[in-house]
Simulated scan of single mutants.
Amino acid sequence: MAILLSTKLNAMEAWRDALLAEDPGLDIRMFPDAGDPADIEAAVVWTAHDLMELRRYPNLKLMVSMGAGVDHLTRPPGPPPGVPVARLKDARLTSGMAEFVLLNVMRFHRQDLEYRAQQAARIWNELPAPDTTKRRIGILGLGELGSAAARTLLPLGFPVMGWTRNPRQVEGVETFHGADGLDAMLRRTDILVCLLPLTPDTRGVVNARTLGLLPRGAFLINAARGGHVVDADLLAALDSGQVAGAALDVFEPEPLPTDHPYWGHPKVLVWPHAASITIPSSAAPQVVENLRRAREGRPLINLVDFTAGY
């Protein structure tokens, strides 16, 4: 089985080495040097790859996405018809996202934006101490990443809530679902964390209406996809004081244009889609397991359900 590997140039060799360390017998071709297209039976790819290009490989039996999100694979033309697609559920990827959420929850909770502004102005002023038990966290999405973020925050004493499309239970988390549940959670949320998959139903979920339901002075953390946020609505909420600050790791488009207002906004923290980056050595065993299953005709793990969008 020849495997086509396609990702950012600076990560290609790390992925190749990690996959070969797991199975030295793999025949890995690094895009664009695929050799005979008929040789390629699996493709391990990220957003750098042109999905139309994959139609050149007549014997393709499996695609593996190098991340948890798969919205980039749903864009036209999409994966080749009939080719199963698997995504990653990697412990290091999950823990990295929980770290990012914790980092920014604590920055907002411990008034870091205010203290940095005071530092810039050379002001020595002690702000009132925040109470962890009164800082309510609302998480949009309680999948692998959202549940891990919740479990990281709970031991610190934060009241944690979570919203999902359908009913779901997570120990220690007050859960909500459906349209009415979303509104109910937002009204009680001091820090809103978006970790939803991007689907037609969740696109633009952070908008003027939903931001307006938050208690005045709430914060936003978005580490899901840029398409979840209506930028103009968030900027208006920041400027009015309805939202006190936002930590944003994802945007639409990416890279974030250099003239975008987020770059210079005093209440916005910007990351370059780096909240949690897949570590090849950690993810390689899962990828190789799926390659073996495809070769042997066994059921694949972590298959994408494109009807659900994840």
Rank of each mutant, 00 (worst) to 15 (best):
R75N: 09
V45L: 15
A284F: 13
I3D: 11
W163P: 09
G82V: 03
A150R: 01
G212K: 06
R295Y: 02
A208Y: 07
A275K: 06
R135H: 13
A237H: 03
P167H: 08
I221Y: 04
R295F: 07
A308N: 05
L127R: 03
A34H: 14
L248C: 04
L142F: 00
G172W: 07
L88F: 05
R216E: 15
H72F: 15
W163R: 06
L60N: 04
A11S: 15
R56E: 13
L26C: 05
P130Y: 02
R298G: 00
N207P: 09
W271D: 04
I123V: 15
P253F: 13
L60K: 01
V250E: 01
G227V: 12
W271P: 00
L235G: 02
D231R: 05
S65H: 11
L103Y: 06
N166M: 03
E22V: 10
K134M: 14
D27F: 01
D249R: 04
Q242K: 13
G241R: 10
N207Q: 12
L238R: 03
Y262W: 08
P253A: 10
P130V: 02
L213E: 13
L198K: 13
R135L: 10
Q118P: 01
A14R: 14
C194Y: 04
R209W: 00
P80I: 11
D239N: 15
A21C: 07
P32K: 13
A237P: 02
G178Y: 01
L186R: 03
R136H: 12
A246N: 12
G69T: 10
D239L: 02
P266S: 08
M97W: 04
M106T: 04
D231K: 12
I40C: 06
L5P: 09
G309N: 05
V45R: 05
V288G: 07
H49A: 12
D231N: 11
T132K: 05
A86I: 13
M185K: 08
P200S: 10
S95C: 02
L145Y: 05
D201M: 10
D71A: 12
N222F: 08
D183T: 08
E171Q: 12
K61H: 04
P299A: 11
G264C: 05
L291K: 09
P37K: 09
L62W: 04
E126N: 04
L62G: 02
W124D: 12
P255A: 09
G82Y: 02
V160L: 07
M52P: 00
K8S: 14
S6A: 15
I40R: 01
R209C: 00
W46K: 08
L192F: 04
G227C: 13
P58K: 04
V205H: 08
L300M: 11
D305H: 06
T258S: 12
L213Y: 03
M161L: 03
L156I: 14
R151E: 05
A284D: 14
A2C: 11
A148K: 00
D180P: 06
T199I: 12
W163V: 07
D71S: 09
N125R: 14
M30P: 09
T74F: 11
P299G: 00
R203Q: 15
V173E: 01
A223H: 06
R298C: 01
H177Y: 13
I139C: 00
